[in-house]
Design a protein around this nucleic acid. Structure first.
Lengths: 222, 222
DNA sequence: ATTACTAAAAGACGAGTAA
DNA sequence: TTTACTCGTCTTTTAGTAA
């Protein structure tokens, strides 16, 4: 757990742009931002570095400070808390887009027994070996970003046959009343305008979907 | 400025539901949440009450604590900071909806010289005396919520002829290339699915718009 | 100008206690 | 059980100093 004061300092550094790259920062300037003495600011920076929440490179006229990956995660967690506090009335979200052809990766992964089991266990249906790929419209891309801190279920990765299989996360949803779930690999960065959906049956056939058909995905949570 | 530790306590109370109504909370339970002694937790609660960030009502078996309006504002400000940190790549937002008839209030307000002047000054065009009302679709309502912490310009209220005119805020945007702005009264609560847009000319005529026409509003900022 | 140390002052912490 | 006080201890802060 990060202390309240360290969090305050980290947030200030992030607001100054410390997440995007190293920023010039003296103990004095940080002290002014926080209303504390430069000595204390200096100690705060040392403490943040010890916890590996920032990295520093010293220069004669100050230091350059950047927020680390871990520091960003701390901030993201904090952000998620405030989202919960400030947006409690999030009921129904709707993502709209068009059906597109995937690359067949989804089918490959969903054919691996371990994944199938894991997904089945937390979703309540045995996933059909294949995914429905949807290209989101502009507005839905924004909605999807909001959903980043929603009720995703984590599915850990595993190792088998000397290969490592990455983790993923799933978000239960509905398409035309059909129970399904959005799947997203944990590690790799996915294009923000595309989602992959799994279900208990082949959605394309069950709902008579073809490429370029428009479609709505409903997410309810909290 | 609220101290880091007080903010931490306030946030914890809010996460426990303190924004929605009074919650039962003992010094012990708050202490457990925060990893501090009940004595310190008690002192924190007293401090929060002194700053009027929470109100307490004592009971023999504990106390009921609720976050005040001021406390909520502190949390909202914090939330806005984290939005700035975590969503820096907000480029283009699109709100989609249908044109509807307003109640003519917009026309009334935009006919008041003081407002006309104020809006004109910060927007770069002299507003046509009338507003275009748009009913947003479901996805756009969510996008609009994200825009809550975007580049709004505040227009203060004023008093004239023994009447008080409330403040408003405007957000510059584009409709089919036309420079315009979303207007929102500061005080009153506006329905979340409707926006009012002002422009330098009468948008209905300039863009040949009729009721129920679908329309997109683009917002670019940061 | 910086950073970061030391040492004195200030303040916070938690055990004990009373109500 | 509570809250909230006092008080001894310990931590944090800041002034002063050196590099």
């Amino acid at each position: 757990m990060v202390e309240a004061e360290d969090l305050q300092s980290l947030k200030t550094i992030a607001l100054l742009g410390g997440c995007r790259g190293p920023i010039w920062l003296s103990s004095q300037s940080l002290g002014n931002e926080l209303g504390i003495s430069p000595q204390t600011a200096s100690r705060r920076l040392i403490a943040l570095e010890r916890q590996q929440l920032v990295i520093r490179s010293m220069k004669p006229d100050g230091q350059y400070v950047a927020v680390t990956r871990e520091g960003e995660q701390v901030l993201k967690r904090e952000y998620a808390d405030y989202v919960r506090i400030c947006n409690p009335e999030r009921r129904r979200y709707t993502l709209a887009g068009t059906v597109i052809s995937g690359l067949g990766e989804g089918r490959y992964y969903m054919s691996i027994p371990h994944y199938k089991e894991q997904f089945g266990g937390c979703l309540g249906f045995e996933p059909f070996p294949g995914t429905l790929n949807i290209r989101l419209d502009a507005a839905s891309i924004q909605v999807r970003k909001q959903l980043d801190h929603a009720g995703w279920i984590d599915v850990p990765g595993f190792t088998a046959d000397e290969r490592t299989f990455g983790g993923a996360r799933v978000l239960p949803c509905l398409i035309r009343g059909q129970k399904c779930a959005i799947v997203e690999p944990s590690r790799t960065h996915y294009p923000e305008d595309i989602i992959e959906v799994i279900a208990g049956s082949e959605l394309r056939k069950a709902l008579n979907l073809n490429d370029n058909d428009t479609i709505e995905v409903e997410i309810t949570h909290d």
